[in-house]
Each structure stands twice: as C-alpha cells, then as structure tokens.
C-alpha cells in the first residue's frame, strides 16, 4: 500500500512539466501551428528560471519570492520565443517541421552556452519549497497524493479546466479553433488569421517556458544541458495522444508519468530485471497507445502545419 501511495504521490508532481508544455503545444496546434521547438523553449525557460534567483543570491540562498521572479522572466522569454517562431512560420511561412527543429536546437544550445558563461558547472539551487494545503494535506492517502506539493503543481492542474474554458467558451478560443481548422473561413469572417496564430504561439511558448522553469526550480532544483531530456518531444506526442483536448492531455501526462515513476521504482526495489527494459517502458507505452488512439483523428485541426496565404487558392 505504501508503495502505491508513494508511487502516485511522486507521479503527480512528475507529470507537471509534461502537462504544462503539452497544454501549450495544444494551443499552438489548435491554431494550426506545429511547434517541434517545444524542447528548446523549455530549455530556455529552465535556464532563465534558475538564473534569476542564482544571480540575485550570487549563488547562495535567496528569499522564495525571487524564485517567482525567475519564473516570470522565464515566461516572458518563452512568449518572446513564441513570437520569434511566429515570425518564421506565420509571416515568412517557413516549413513548420524544420523551423521547429531549428528552434529546438537554438533553445537547447543557447541555454547551455549561456549557462556555462554565467554559472559554469552544474549548480543546485534551493528552489521552490512544498506548500502543503492546510487541512486537505492531512487527509490520509489523498492528502499525500494531491495536496502536498509546491504551488506550481496546483497551478498546473487548475490550469487544465481554465485551458478548456479558454478553448471552448471564449471568443478567442473560438477564433483559435477556426484558424486551425479552416483558416479561409475564419478569414472570410473578418478574423485575422495570422494575429490569432501569433497569440496562440506566444501563449504556447509561455507555457513551455513555465514548464522548463518548473523542472529547474521545483523538480530537479538544478540546471544542466540535458535537464529537459526529450520531455518537449513527449509533450508534442501527448497532444496527439490527448486528441487536442486539455482533459485528455492531462490523462496522458499522468499515465506517462506513472509509467516513468513505476520504472524508477522497480529499479529502486532491486529486483533482478534488466534496467534497460524498465527505462523503455514509458516510451513503449506512448507508442502503443498512440497507435491505437490516433486512427480516429476527426478532431485534429485540419489546417495543422499549413501556412495561410489569402491570395493563393489551394
């Protein structure tokens, strides 16, 4: 029993980075832009997030609120990177797959280089402490699993219904869905297709950077060039997995994290089982589930990956 509770209590905070990044990617894709550069934006977010409190404290301990300044800076850098990506793929209409890989390399590379310049070697930070929810965290089992985490964890899970509301209940969400499915129709209704895509890219970039800052400040409490470790790409896959719907994406993020924590746990138990197979488990799981769920893609944004040009008929 303890094993299971521990597993679940670990899995919830572990899923946050994936959850935030894939909700961001969902907004990109709903607007018709495929952003493979998520990984790079996360790396930049992770670096900026830890750099701000590190510089302020000159490498030592800092007050907790400086961590949030770091997060704010990371989110702003993420939005700027989204804007930059928009310039390339929306205004200049570059092929999105290639541009995304470019952004990924740019982000990971720049973050690593600046890290070596400003920080040097691997350096741990104090990071964001846990904030147990009063009363609720005292509930046996449930309290440990859901209510004994840091503030960003609560934020990420509360953001899922917010994202749903934005997407399906606001005029901006309506515009995002229209420009990602049938931009020509949106255009004929007087909606600025490119502007809407820029906005979605900025939101997506901000969320990806927030996800990165969560990794460096709250989860790993350190930065290294391999900190993101492919989570950006998993986030992209989770968007397909979750059929572009926030709640299903959350389910995917939790499932993947559960597999991840499970494999770490069996290694820890010291069972005689080749660890290579354990490490493979979460990835195999994603491939298997994707191949079963992606057949019915009626909800997919049909203009995904296609630049819009009003004066060219297709």
């Amino acid at each position: 029993m303890d094993f299971v509770v521990n597993l679940l209590a670990m899995c919830v905070p572990f899923s946050v980075a994936l959850l935030l990044a894939s909700i961001g990617e969902m907004f990109n894709q709903r607007a018709g832009v495929f952003n493979l550069g998520c990984e790079g934006v996360m790396a930049m977010g992770a670096f900026i997030g830890m750099l701000v409190p590190f510089m302020i404290g000159k490498g030592g301990e800092v007050a907790n609120y400086w961590n949030y300044l770091g997060i704010l800076a990371a989110v702003m850098v993420g939005a700027l990177l989204g804007l930059f990506f928009g310039l390339i793929v929306v205004t200049f209409r570059a092929p999105q797959g290639i541009a995304g890989i470019g952004l990924q390399m740019f982000g990971v590379g720049t973050a690593g280089t600046l890290f070596r310049h400003f920080v040097g070697g691997t350096q741990s930070v104090v990071g964001i402490p846990n904030s147990p929810v009063p009363l609720l965290s005292k509930i046996p089992v449930v309290g440990d699993i859901f209510f004994n985490h840091n503030l960003l964890v609560y934020f990420a899970f509360l953001f899922v219904p917010v994202a749903w509301y934005i997407l399906f209940k606001t005029s901006w969400g309506l515009k995002v869905r229209a420009v990602g499915t049938y931009p020509r129709a949106a255009d004929s209704m007087g909606i600025n297709v490119n502007k809407t895509r820029y906005q979605a890219l900025m939101l997506g970039g901000a969320l990806a950077a927030l996800s990165g800052a969560y990794l460096s400040l709250a989860q790993a409490k350190m930065f290294s060039q391999s900190l993101i470790a492919g989570r950006g790409f998993i986030a992209v896959a989770l968007v397909y997995f979750g059929h572009w719907h926030p709640v299903q994406i959350m389910g995917g993020a939790l499932l993947f994290s559960l597999a991840q924590t499970f494999q770490a746990a069996i290694q820890g138990l010291g069972i005689n089982f080749p660890y290579e197979f354990a490490v493979m488990l979460p990835y195999v799981l994603v491939i298997v589930v994707l191949s079963f769920t992606s057949r019915n893609q009626t909800t997919s944004p049909s203009a995904l990956g296609k630049p819009f040009n009003r004066e060219i008929r297709t």
Partner: peptide, 13 residues
Amino acid sequence: VPNMTVTENVALG
C-alpha cells in the same frame, strides 16, 4: 468550420 456547430460558426463573425 466543419467541426463546429452552426451557432459557433455564426459566432465567429
């Protein structure tokens, strides 16, 4: 937009 309702399509404009 095919995967939206009639009302949502009107709401776009």
